[in-house]
Design a protein around this nucleic acid. Structure first.
Lengths: 204, 204
DNA sequence: CAACTTAGGGTACGGAGCGTACCCTATTTT
DNA sequence: AAAATAGGGTACGCTCCGTACCCTAAGTTG
């Protein structure tokens, strides 16, 4: 709740400077109090401005939340390259799980449910979040496995690539939140992902 | 918003009768206005009672919503038996999709997001909803396929059984709500489920 | 049958929080 | 210098959850 902005100077911020201050404040609230705690009034106060300035830029709280979320994402997901598909997949799935179980992940999940009925915001969130980067990572994983003849070429398929993360997300959605234990990750890789890859060999 | 209860008789309902009236009213609201429209005040008014009587029985709106949801579920999911795994799976997945895309499914999804951070309510919802029945259905599907030697015995596994529905749910979660088109269902079965079943043949 | 206990009913309220409306003032543009 | 634009301050309306009182009907007990 620290001011985050020195309003000493009676100079009135405008445009980009103000927008930046708002986003910084919103991101701070997200970090400290989660999405539920990111109140419009609090954000306004923390940014040293008022709700007018916010609503002039974002039509709704959820939109602001998504915009602010970018600021707390430490992106730069790097694709593991351990030399074997199994260990690569496990590493990537662990990375995903770490993200989802972090406080940051809690914010993300809250955002997801908050915009669950607005397709536009939903796709916006997905593009900003790098959920697409995740899929891309799994695809390169698969390509490498194919190059090592560890997997059939037919395994390089977007649906296949998205399965592990989807199942992991399912765990979060159905069970409560705490965190998905590591043996579940192993199970996803060994009981689902690897058999799936293998099974696409003699396919159409 | 029709009274749903004749309060002509000054006879004051108690216990089970009242509880039933409340649940009926809540279910009616769910049907007509969805979970968002299921206001405690409206339920109370519609049941011809007041919020006291409700809160004496359910601690929170979400709990009432879950209890009322049972009433609008037309359960009795029957396991398809077409003679082939592919068509069985497709039929079952279509049934699941029909449920999820119906207004009833919208209520269910709203409930899911509403209780997303309460593990207790979450499991309560899952047991009442028959999400478990779904898994069981997929398992019998697999068992029949094994009996026809259409699938290896190792394919009968809870994780395998839950994959198609999980992926379907993922479609709803990531894309907006409207409805998942049929070719996606076909894709899930052909590109994921069947290869997965096949791939578990020479497994551990 | 009278006294007592329990549970409903009526109603009002506190508290959040979103989104909006006004009106004034500092900046920027013309 | 005048006009247009965008911030700031502040107060509201509105919805809705959950709670608090206080009164009364229905059951329960002696």
């Amino acid at each position: 709740m620290s001011p985050d902005q020195q309003r000493d100077t009676p100079t009135r911020r405008r445009g980009a400077a103000l927008e930046d201050a708002i986003l910084r404040a919103a991101a701070g609230e997200l970090r400290e109090s989660g999405y539920a705690g990111m109140t419009m009034d609090r954000v306004a106060q923390r940014a040293g401005t008022n709700k007018n300035a916010i609503y002039r830029r974002w039509p709704t709280r959820a939109a602001l939340g998504i915009a602010a979320y970018r600021r707390i994402v430490d992106t730069e997901l790097q694709v593991p390259d351990t030399g074997a598909l199994r260990t690569d997949a496990l590493a990537l799935l662990r990375a995903a799980n770490a993200t989802w179980s972090s406080p940051q992940g809690a914010v993300l999940r809250a955002l997801l449910t908050a915009v669950g009925d607005d397709p536009d915001l939903l796709t916006l969130l997905r593009t900003q979040t790098g959920g697409n980067a995740m899929d891309a990572a799994w695809l390169t994983l698969l390509e490498r496995a194919v190059a090592r003849s560890e997997a059939p070429p037919e395994a390089v398929h977007p649906r296949v690539a998205s399965v592990p993360v989807t199942v992991l997300r399912g765990e979060y959605a159905l069970r409560g939140l705490p965190e998905v234990p590591d043996d579940v990750l192993v199970e996803i890789v060994e009981e689902i992902f690897l058999p799936l890859v293998r099974g696409r060999a003699a396919s159409s």
